[in-house]
Design a protein around this nucleic acid. Sequence first.
DNA 1: ATAGACTTTCCACTAACTGGAAGGTCAAGG
DNA 2: CCTTGACCTTCCAGTTAGTGGAAAGTCTAT
Lengths: 127, 127
Amino acid sequence: MNISEAAKASGLPVKTVRYYADIGLVEAASRSQAGYRIYNDAAVRRLSFIRRARTFDFSVAECRELLDLYQDQGRTSAEVKKIASKRLEEIEIKQRELQALRDDLAHLVKACRGDDRPDCPIIDFLG
Amino acid sequence: MNISEAAKASGLPVKTVRYYADIGLVEAASRSQAGYRIYNDAAVRRLSFIRRARTFDFSVAECRELLDLYQDQGRTSAEVKKIASKRLEEIEIKQRELQALRDDLAHLVKACRGDDRPDCPIIDFLG
DNA sequence: ATAGACTTTCCACTAACTGGAAGGTCAAGG
DNA sequence: CCTTGACCTTCCAGTTAGTGGAAAGTCTAT
């Protein structure tokens, strides 16, 4: 498989596959005579794994950890759970922040008449 | 006021105040003989305005728009409300995404025993 | 042989700062 | 007057996770 086939199979853009190779996250299985990256099924599995983990907002660093665990037959589920729990907690913190933000902003937007006069509670609040 | 006083008064780090000057968002009122930035109350008000808007996750570009409106006596509240409403909608979209993410991840974390055995539904799902 | 669809590397850019180096300035204390 | 330490300046690099593009090489089909 060359890079565009691997990209299609893993659901990632070609540029991103090349980027992951550059940073040593998922290297190509080998290179052709001409220097083209060649991917095999195992490499594509790793790429897909990363893509899925990224949709969970795991950072690339966390993906690297998870990938190591993924490939380590001797890993314990406790190790994996620890990383996932940390991510979950971060997401929940972000959620609470976002909720507070939304409520404040919604309040201001609601209070603003949005007409052609200049007085505006949003600006009053910010200024 | 020199930069560290302005920073303290506006609640921003010195580096950030300098950065905002660099990008032409909030320039110092003048410079001293020695080239030190000098801030006055109006500049500090603008810095504070930006800081508050940033806590609402307005981008720097949006802050620039808002700042223009803030300083424009002829603005209408409709103009301000339009920007704030757009921001609010983006926040709500982000909230829904985050909720879906959290639910999926929470489900996986809950299903994972987190013991010293290798089998793990999180890894199973990702792989 | 040549067109066009691939591939390579490398460089620059994104947002919004932050950290650090090298060097100039200022105020207080001895 | 000199020194010390806390300021200040500019400039450069790095952060995240890629994306866009240029120049050049390769592959495949006609």
